[in-house]
Design a protein around this nucleic acid. Structure first.
Length: 794
DNA sequence: GAGTTTGAAACT
DNA sequence: CAGTTTCAAACTC
């Protein structure tokens, strides 16, 4: 601990602050005591002073400034110093924050105070690396001048919160998580700023829970634990959620200081609550939390800060990662792909998402960065990409209308990284709104997230193993706070992004995967296959690990057959009017991006992230369960799966695929409101259909197997050069080997059995067999032709 | 492939 | 909440 002693201390104002300053009152921010005014009168001081509150006498602003010991040179913050006998100089800097030097001091506004107080009742431990944040909160209602409120950002947690319209106040505060720490509140009102002590004691882990309108704890305690700075801008109308420019500046400056790199320009045009937080320093783990929140109300729970990262992730040696963080806000910059180690970070022009591509196997003990980059590429504060500097970029975003996003990025070193992902893929992570989801960055994957906040925490065992396009909803309370989703971008997007080409160019994309078997599944097969899924629904219910469940409107398939891109085969949509942003669109309803679809004017893609997010939110507003599987966990009294809502069929008898129950291969239940339902257990019509379906399935399987065998047999036949002329040539009979004949016979037999099982008339049975023979023959001929062509080329 | 039917989603 | 409209898939020809 050092003492300010009798040296001079300086409080520096930037030009804007100085311009608004017609008179100065200096007070002790801890006690609120007026220390001095520009008249030179020293009133009193009782505490150790790290910061001074400098208030304009005419009320346009109040700032909290660190005490700088002039004798120690410029920008030396004597944290923990006691201000005892000092001469306080209030002066103006000439250059923007972060660039000031002594030489930049252009004018002394006041040489106003000579303290002569002996005692040092309290001192603060020196962190040696405190960060100073100067923020502008709001415009002065009278002068229109911004009201600068420099605050200490050692806590490195910022909260920017919209207030109810009824409020005509803004609050800038910072709080300590230490329960015993006294707190102060700086309240901005239309008349100015009021500094007042908080009366409630902080509770660990719930400091922001205490946040009440217009009153937010201010951190005064040392940097031992993270503290928070909360800025609550005024909201003028009940539904108005736009931050005013000054508030944007607040955040910008706060972030700027937070990053200490001075490379931040944040703009916010939508209501947001932003928390930037550094995790506990002692662990060496830097975690960055970005939180946006729409109000009007702040539920205490949602206001709780992220207090920890997974213990297993706190094995970091970096002493203070976030203090080295780099915040870069980039607007409409060209796409940048930074490939570092196992991860490529991709910045897409015009996109506020930051894309992460997992590109290569990761070995062990990769040293991860100790610094973070926060990249933002839009005008709103709803989204931010948080990227550990030099590697492991990951993006946490939320749509404007979403309530809240919180990101915690523990930065680790010497941590073994996850195995190589199955396929190169790009993952976009959309953070849940109003949740405290924490996504530790751990190499090429996100693994074993320990619950940090009780309910809303989502655990993803390995992001890289999730199928591209996956969208995962936070498990709990999803119906309360709106969207809570993660989205993983299909890997094919990455390729396009890397090529800097427009997305979803149908002409250039590979052909869609073969459609799933159209034939209905047998009951047994369907049951088994229901355990798998082809699409990852937007809602995943498992509270611990995201699970794959049956998707809506998608026939089940055997196994997770992947496309070349790694995506699961899927049925392309054909939407024309909905822009694929309504539940009419199966892609959208399944929480997927459209890909290889035939849709028109599609907005269900990365290029329309904002629209899409709004649409999702809109759907969730209408129905919080909108993205939950329709055929999910709900079961009837007999334990059979059932449609969650039931169908409403009127004319189909629930025996056509119009019926969602029938389509899902389940029977209608008491939840259904259908007319003339024939989709019940004892229904003869249903039995007939199921019988036919079974037969068809068997037929398909047998034919597939036989044809596969046939093809393999044909292809295994030694090729021989063509012996016949081009016209009237004969096919090589040598292709008809015994194996080919056997496979053909199997096809015919299967067909015959099927025809018999269907109790077809003999004539029909005969015809079916003949037709099957014809198909076999055509295949043989085709194979022969291909073999000959190949030989010709050779 | 065009046109029709159907029922869920969206809207009023 | 009910009635109507919109929409895209399923279906038919």
């Amino acid at each position: 601990m050092t003492s300010q002693g009798e040296g001079h201390v300086a409080v520096e104002l930037d030009a804007m602050e100085a311009a608004a300053c017609t008179g100065i009152v200096v007070s002790n921010p801890m006690s609120g005591e007026i220390i001095a005014s520009s008249s030179g009168v020293v009133t009193s001081t009782t505490d150790t002073v790290n910061y001074l509150t400098v208030q304009s006498q005419n009320g346009p602003f109040i700032i909290q400034q660190p005490v700088k010991n002039v004798n120690n040179g410029p920008n030396v913050v004597n944290n923990g110093s006691a201000l005892t006998k000092s001469h306080i100089i209030v002066r103006q800097k000439a250059v923007p924050l972060g660039q000031q030097t002594t030489s930049n001091v252009t004018s002394v506004l006041g040489d106003i105070v000579t303290l002569d107080k002996p005692g040092m009742k309290r001192s603060l431990p020196s962190s040696g690396s405190n960060v100073i944040t100067k923020v502008i909160i709001t415009k002065n209602p009278a002068s229109g001048q911004p009201q600068p409120v420099p605050v200490r950002t050692n806590p490195q947690t910022l909260t920017l919160t919209s207030l109810p319209s009824s409020s005509n106040q803004s609050v800038v505060s910072a709080s300590s998580d230490q329960p015993e720490t006294p707190t102060k509140t700086v309240t901005l009102t239309s008349q100015g700023i009021v500094l007042s002590p908080m009366t409630t004691a902080s509770v660990p882990g719930t400091s922001t829970a205490k946040i009440v309108p217009y009153k937010i704890p201010i951190p005064i305690s040392p940097s031992k634990t993270p503290t928070k700075i909360t800025m609550i801008p005024v909201s003028r109308s009940p539904n108005k959620t736009t931050l005013n420019p000054a508030n944007i500046t607040v955040l910008s400056r706060a972030l700027n200081t937070f990053a200490q790199s001075g490379n931040v320009t944040l703009k916010a045009t939508s209501p947001s609550k932003v928390i930037i937080k550094q995790g506990p320093a002692p662990t060496g783990s830097g975690s960055l939390t970005v939180k946006t929140q729409s109000l009007p109300t702040i539920a205490p729970q949602t206001a709780q800060p992220i207090r920890a990262v997974a213990p297993s992730l706190q094995t970091v040696q970096a002493p203070n990662a976030v203090q080295n963080a780099r915040l870069a806000v980039q607007d409409k910059k060209p796409m940048v792909i930074n490939s570092v180690g196992s991860v490529q970070q991709i910045q897409v022009p015009g996109s506020r998402f930051h894309y992460v591509r997992l590109v290569s196997p990761v070995t062990t003990s990769t040293t991860l960065p100790t610094s973070l980059s926060v990249v933002k590429t839009s005008d709103t504060l709803n989204q931010a990409s948080v990227v550990p500097k030099n590697a492991i970029p990951i993006t946490m975003t939320t749509a404007p209308q979403l309530n809240q996003v919180k990101i915690t990025l523990p930065v680790q070193q010497n941590m073994p990284l996850a195995p190589k992902p199955a396929a190169t893929s790009v993952h976009r992570v959309i953070l849940p709104a109003t949740t405290t989801t924490t996504v530790p960055v751990q190499g090429a994957s996100v693994t074993s997230l320990a619950p940090i906040q009780p309910a809303p925490t989502v655990s993803i065992q390995n992001v890289s193993q999730l199928p591209p396009g996956t969208t995962i909803l936070s498990p709990s309370n999803a119906n309360i706070q709106g969207l809570r989703s993660f989205a993983l971008v299909p890997a094919s997007y990455v390729t396009q992004l890397q090529l800097n080409k427009p997305l979803v160019s149908k002409a250039t994309l590979p052909p869609p995967p073969p459609p799933p078997p159209s034939a209905p599944l047998s009951t047994s097969a369907a049951s088994a296959q229901r355990q798998t899924r082809d699409y990852v629904p937007i809602a995943s219910i498992d509270p611990v690990v995201t699970q794959y469940t049956v998707s809506r409107n998608v026939p089940a398939q055997n196994g997770p057959t992947l496309e070349a891109t790694g995506a699961r085969p899927r049925k392309p949509c054909n939407c024309t009017k909905s822009q694929c942003l309504k539940l009419y669109c199966d892609c959208f309803a399944n929480g997927e991006f459209c890909q290889n679809c035939n849709c028109t004017n599609c907005a269900n893609n990365l290029e329309h992230e904002e629209e899409r997010s709004k649409a999702i939110k809109s759907c969730l507003d209408r129905n919080p369960q909108a993205f939950h599987p329709k055929i999910g966990k709900a079961k009837d009294i007999e334990g059979n799966r059932r449609h969650t809502k039931g169908c409403n069929c009127k004319r189909s008898g629930c025996l056509k695929n119009y019926c969602e129950c029938y389509e899902a291969k389940i029977m209608c239940s008491s939840f259904c409101k259908c007319f003339g339902c024939k989709n019940f257990e004892e229904s003869p019509e249903r039995k007939t259909l199921m019988h036919l379906a079974d037969a068809a399935e068997v037929r398909v399987q047998q034919q597939t197997a036989a044809k596969t065998k046939l093809s393999s047999q044909i292809s295994s036949v030694p090729s021989r050069p063509p012996t016949a002329p081009a016209s009237g040539e004969r096919l090589p009979f040598a292709l008809i080997t015994s194996d080919v004949a056997e496979a053909t016979s199997a096809c015919l037999l299967a067909q015959a059995e099927e025809a018999e099982r269907m109790k077809m008339p003999a004539v029909v049975q005969e015809r079916m067999v003949i037709e099957e023979f014809g198909r076999c023959l055509m295949q043989i001929i085709d194979s022969a032709n291909r073999t000959r062509t190949a030989n010709s080329v050779a």
